[in-house]
Write a protein that binds this DNA or RNA. Structure first.
Length: 599
DNA sequence: GCCGTTTTCGGCCCGACTGTTTTCAGTCG
């Protein structure tokens, strides 16, 4: 039923409408309007259906009176009369063909018509068969080459990979950058696109280099040791396939014009569109080559000058999503975003302490983890293993385990050999059971400095029940953190359904913190909810959820999520010193400054 | 179809690439 339609499915429907309108040669701005509505809906983290229930559809930018009316009909009746009419005389198979790179609406329509492709289920297979039989090149407007391109496109589609997780793409790009930088001094190399903007998932890796000798750089690039295949090595650009199957593009530009190139290919698309609208009003025209003023092209060494020429301060790439950053930059009011160096501790870490949980244990000892945290310059580390399993233990057994962990941590904290500028905080990640109760006995809290409450089961409750469950789970005064709050796993599991306004106002009122979990397939809160939490004044904490010692390095990806959500140092709890945190948690024991006196 | 510290009407981003064409339409980022 349409009432169960996800945002993604609604976005797909609107894209099909846009494609259909294009085939019919309708006004291109109307088509663009449907596409814009589709992409905003796709990026919205609140369910469109619940916004509709609250009569708030038009609060979404790109949804006006008409599309709101159509969506209303969709939710009420399961279909939209106007859409059905548009689709009526079109072959349904054409929408499948749009997945093939190089095939747009008009091509898809023509192919379906000429090849009598109707059924979406086997549309691509039918197309492939026709291409193999040489039927496509005979169609007017197609030729030998386009038939070959279609076969290649189908092959790519069938082999397509899911998008890469940010950390994976980031590390690969850094490896190539390090390789290219070797023996070259002062070379400017940057990732482009969603990678430079630090989106949670990345399609292809694109890099740019500022150079007067593009040939030398490209020659070196195509000798990168991990190359599987060189697709093209031209005068100024090159494309290779990495041994892992990923495509990597390199663009070069002379240094004096590099600023515009970098800006252009960093995007996002919506950011650039908005920027060009600003430019037009100033009588300017933007492109990857620079800014045209009365037909004359100006070059830019650096992005900073480029933005300045448009009357605004430089905008950090993470903010370039057209969420108000351009207006803020015009007024010189961009937030001072949090940085990695602001972080003073990590409060969600799993050690190998035998906690006897039904969930996974960490791989490394408390001592090793504490050493690593100190190497990172942290003042504190919060050990928060999963709670001992509820069904396998009696209450007394759970209390005994928690007591043993408390004693171990106390011993480490008060041992004479420990560095005095560092503290271990005794935490626990506790399941919020489906009824909203927490999975340890009340007395167990006496052993804890604080607790993280998280959902690890029954993900499919409706919004009202799930929200009630979470709010109940956060009530206990020792529970300060709501762990990986949406429960999403990128490419694997959708977020569960929560009423975020209620969660935000509860957290604000009761001084609870939302976690930004930096684990690669979580990155949860997602950036869009961080943005809303910041606006609502809710505090957050960036944790790595490490299960091995190396994973403490993942903090940078949590930072990137926070930055994409406009978070400053003040929005993030673990930028505080140990003494400030200890005060918030009512921890007994010596403050660090006094202990430091002994050093 | 959307949107508004230039507008409730009249605008709406830009350029490259490609293949099939004799001047351009479609697609992409």
């Amino acid at each position: 039923m349409s009432h169960e339609m996800s945002n993604k499915e609604i976005a797909d429907l609107l894209r099909r409408v846009a494609a259909a309108l294009e085939v019919k040669g309708k006004n291109s701005f109307k088509i663009a309007a449907y596409e814009k509505a589709a992409s905003t809906i796709e990026q919205t983290d609140v369910e469109i259906k619940s916004l509709w229930q609250e009569n708030r559809l038009q609060e979404i930018s790109g949804i006006g009176i008409n599309i709101a009316k159509h969506l209303n009909e969709l939710f009420e009746k399961g279909e939209v009369n106007y859409f059905e009419k548009i689709f009526q005389d079109l072959p349904q198979g054409m929408f499948e063909l749009l997945n093939i790179s190089g095939i747009g609406p008009k091509t898809a329509y023509k192919l379906c018509l000429k090849l009598k492709i109707e059924n979406p289920k086997n549309a691509i297979d039918q197309l492939e068969e026709a291409a193999k039989k040489g039927k496509i090149k005979k169609i007017e407007g197609f030729g030998e080459q386009s038939e070959k391109d279609i076969l290649e496109g189908i092959k790519q589609y069938k082999n397509r990979d899911e998008r890469m997780l940010l950390p994976f793409a980031w590390e690969l790009s850094q490896k190539i950058i390090n390789y290219l930088e070797k023996d070259e001094k002062n070379l400017r190399i940057d990732p482009l696109g969603s990678l430079r903007r630090m989106s949670s998932t990345i399609g292809d890796i694109d890099l740019a280099v500022a150079t007067d000798k593009p040939q030398e750089i490209i020659k070196k690039f195509i000798k990168f040791p991990e190359i599987k295949e060189i697709i093209v090595a031209g005068k100024n650009t090159a494309r290779i396939i990495h041994q892992n199957g990923r495509q990597i593009d390199l663009k070069t530009m002379k240094p004096e014009a590099y600023g515009a190139l970098l800006q252009h290919f960093t995007g996002s698309k919506q950011h650039n569109i908005h920027l060009r609208e600003v430019a037009i009003k100033k009588g300017l025209s933007l492109s990857e080559y620079g800014i045209k003023r009365q037909g004359k092209l100006e070059n830019f060494h650096f992005e900073k000058e480029f933005y300045k020429a448009l009357g605004m301060e430089w905008i950090p790439p993470e903010l370039r999503e057209d969420k108000g950053e351009i207006e803020a930059a015009q007024k010189n009011k961009l937030p001072k975003l949090i940085e990695l160096k602001d972080i003073r501790g990590d409060l969600h870490i799993h050690s190998d302490f035998p906690i006897e949980s039904s969930h996974d244990l960490g791989a490394d000892s408390i001592e090793i983890l504490a050493k690593k945290a100190q190497d990172l310059g942290y003042e504190y580390l919060g050990l928060s293993e999963h709670n001992p399993s509820f069904s396998q233990h009696s209450s007394q057994q759970i209390l005994d385990i928690l007591k043993r962990k408390r004693e171990k941590i106390d011993k480490l904290n008060y041992s004479r050999t420990r560095k005095l500028s560092f503290s271990i905080i005794n935490s626990l990640e506790i399941d919020i059971k489906p009824d909203g109760n927490l999975a340890i006995p009340e007395k167990g809290f006496d052993f804890l400095d604080l607790a993280i409450a998280s959902i690890h089961s029954s993900f499919k409750m409706n919004q009202k029940e799930m929200t009630k469950r979470v709010l109940h789970g956060l009530v206990h005064p020792k529970v300060k953190i709501f762990g990986h709050p949406t429960g999403r796993k990128l490419g694997e599991r959708e977020p569960y359904n929560l009423n975020w306004e209620q969660i935000f106002s509860f957290c604000l009122k009761n001084n609870k913190w939302l976690e930004i979990n930096a684990f690669p397939n979580r990155l949860d809160l997602p950036d869009s909810l961080v943005y809303k939490a910041v606006k609502a004044g809710v505090k957050m904490i960036i944790d790595t959820d490490s299960h091995t010692v190396d994973q403490l390095n993942l903090m940078i990806y949590g930072i990137s999520v926070a930055r994409r959500g406009w978070a400053t140092k003040n929005d993030i709890i673990n930028t505080m010193s140990y003494n400030q945190i200890a005060k918030l948690l009512n921890l007994k024991g010596l403050p660090l400054s006094k202990m430091k006196g002994g050093e």
